[in-house]
Design a protein around this nucleic acid. Structure first.
Lengths: 195, 195
DNA sequence: GTCTATATGCTGATAGAC
DNA sequence: GTCTATCAGCATATAGAC
């Protein structure tokens, strides 16, 4: 990627984050150097520090933006009346959201240990909030008697792990469309909680 | 850990691998230096090269040993007659095996991208073989008409992701015993495939 | 079998020219 | 806003003393 003279902050900033996202996802945070990111953007290493305080902040900003987007995208979904419909909406939303941004998802799960202590706590809080959304649905469904989850926390973690796992194998252009995949996963979720 | 004069190859070799396993799991392969591993063992960095060709081999050996152990432990399990019983055995085996060695499991999933191309291919082949075991069970169950898996490969990946996810949250001494956890997961697996 | 010493090179981050 | 140049430190891996 050739350097463009006259790049502006509004353009280069996002490009730095996009390059970091791609490289961190591909090789891992610790294995990627600031020089590699700079090369991907088409600037020299020193120039990156105009857009990020340091490497750690770059990682944190990516993860924070991802979690914020996840939470607000879910909050923007229409809220069904009954627990089973809400569970279905959650399953379909989760799969679609995760399939749309595999790099960000990968980083959000794999690079937690490379966050500083306080950054980790902040991201973890956001993750807990998201898990809490599913927990609330399961709790409601249990109360309504329309599904069975003997341990809400365990079931929450199991379902999220199952759904997120779609990113490990799904590739666009394969034999199944995203919707077909979501259909099957939803059937499995429903069966798993006896809904 | 203090240095022991008179250490022997048969002792130090395994200690090097144990130290690498622990540190790779905790901080990630790329973030751990040979000096850190040496310090954990209680020797100087140069001495490590008596036990491993290089850092890459250290990672590969750990992952290969883990996958071999997984495959042979499963092969050693008694083989039930019907597909549903085999599925139950697989679910319980998978959970127990994974809960017993969280560090090795973590590395086996997180450090794939730090393997050289040929090492990656070798590990991936072992992983495929393990997944094939579950696929075969689902295929048989489908043929017997005792369970429903509209897409065998998808269901395989979904179930393995769900089961492996137990390692992200389970801690010994929590409110659930390992057997209780396995009971609940098995119920979810059974429900997910309509068995 | 382990040590110390060392080679060669890359790291994150900063300073100052333009 | 980006460049070049540079600092101090750490990386992997090897050589040779003991």
């Amino acid at each position: 990627m050739a350097r463009k003279t006259g790049s502006h902050s509004e353009i280069t900033g996002p490009r730095v984050r996009a390059a970091a996202l791609k490289l961190f996802a591909r090789h891992g945070f610790a294995a990627v150097s600031m020089r590699q990111i700079a090369a991907e953007v088409g600037v020299q290493a020193g120039a990156l520090y105009l857009y990020t305080k340091d490497k750690q902040s770059l990682l944190y900003d990516l993860m924070q933006a991802h979690m914020d987007e996840l939470l607000s995208a879910w909050a923007a979904q229409p809220k069904a009346d009954d627990a089973v419909s809400r569970l279905e909406a959650f399953a379909r939303f989760h799969i679609q959201f995760h399939l749309e941004r595999p790099d960000a998802v990968f980083i959000a799960y794999m690079e937690l240990r490379n966050l500083s202590d306080e950054n980790f706590a902040a991201i973890e809080a956001l993750r807990r909030r998201y898990e809490g959304e599913l927990e609330a649905i399961l709790q409601a469904g249990q109360a309504e008697g329309v599904l069975s989850a003997p341990d809400i926390r365990l079931t929450t973690m199991a379902l999220i792990a199952m759904l997120t796992g779609v990113n490990t194998w799904y590739r666009d252009g394969g034999r199944l469309s995203r919707d077909a995949v979501a259909d099957i996963y939803w059937d499995m979720v429903r069966g798993a909680v006896g809904a």
